[in-house]
Amino acid sequence: MDQVAELLVLTLAAGTPLVFAALGELVTEKSGVLNLGVEGMMLVGAVTSFMVAATTGSPWLGVGAGMLAGAALSLVFAVLTLSLMANQVATGLALSLFGIGLSAFVGLGYVSIVIEGIAPLGVPGLSDLPLVGKLLFGHNPLVYLSLALFAAIRWFLYRTRPGLILRAVGENPQSAHAIGFPVVRIRYLAVMFGGACAGIGGAYLAVAYTPLWTEGMTAGRGWIALALVVFATWRPWRVLAGAYLFGGVTLATFQAQALGVTVPSQLLAMLPYLATIVVLAIISRDATAIRLNAPASLGRPFHPGL
């Protein structure tokens, strides 16, 4: 039974970067903006956090810096799409390509450096309890942070007035504008929140999960996070479930190798991507459900002068 608990702990650990990135993107998309730059923002968050952690010796400062870096990069996206009305798809792709290039460039001197990362929590006494000890008290502090973020986002979106306004802006920006809500400003905030979350997701990888920096270390997690938001039909708790499902798939590929399964490693490594495709196809199949749940103005530019 302890092994089961151990596996659950590892699954949560593997799914957490997706939780951060996908929840952030969920909030962005709820405001009607589609930011495809998650992969780039995660990488920039990862490299910034690692550099700050390596320089200052404090991984927590690194997480803060990664968060700010993700938000800063998303600001570029916001200016282009919200103020200059650029195409959101093209700009998001540009953000990802730019983030991949930027992180590779600035992180070059940090590739083989070893740092002291954020270690999993160990509450004396409690973490050693049988069964529940590890499960309740043995996670990385950032895992608890991601769960708190989940609860906060759920509460914000569905239980508060600003959350209602955010969703209204995503459903019908013209109406929201007409009754006096600052549509563009709200979207700016939503985009930057998404960027900050993606930055923390990257930081988690660089200073807690691995902890190290390698070029392109997110390995497509930003894109999987985007797919997760669709799987989840834009609902927070499904994002959480989906993220852990994919954490489990990633973990299964590692475990299979450790157990000496003779399938070549490259074929195992394909599994998370193939799983993403299969689940995406199954969920998207119900076009009505997607249309009803997706924010109605998702991806469309809004010009307040019109």
């Binding site: 798809v89 497509g220 797919a227 490259q266 074929l267």
Partner: peptide, 27 residues
């Protein structure tokens, strides 16, 4: 096919297949 038959987003599917193709070549 997935876009026309299953309404799946072609951006995400085509990107996921990049990783699958790269791993296939590597294998």
């Amino acid at each position: 096919l997935l876009r026309t038959r299953f309404n799946a987003n072609e951006i995400l599917v085509s990107l996921m297949l990049v990783y699958v193709a790269t791993y296939t070549l590597s294998f």
